[in-house]
């Protein structure tokens, strides 16, 4: 499997598995933040807009 002899060797990363995988986990979290935050912002814009429209109708 690539540069590793087995899947468990891939997970173990020599004896550096903890370091490599925790670094990549933080990377995944940062990517998730950047993908999700604009979506939440968009939803907030829409709900604010709807509230404003309702207020104006009354």
């Amino acid at each position: 499997m690539g540069a590793f002899e087995s899947f468990s060797a891939f997970l173990a990363m020599g004896d550096h598995g903890v370091y490599v995988w925790s670094a990549y986990a933080v990377g995944a979290a940062v990517i998730a933040f950047n993908v999700v935050a604009p979506r939440l912002h968009r939803q907030r814009l829409i709900s604010d807009h709807k509230r404003r429209m309702r207020r104006e109708q009354r």
Partner: peptide, 24 residues
């Protein structure tokens, strides 16, 4: 970078962090 790049002679597999450390 994680699976196919060869292991680094001095740092072992910890060097694979470079693929996200330097770009960020």
């Amino acid at each position: 970078g994680l699976l196919f790049a060869p292991v680094e002679r001095l740092q072992g597999n910890s060097y694979r962090i470079i693929f996200i450390h330097v770009p960020s």
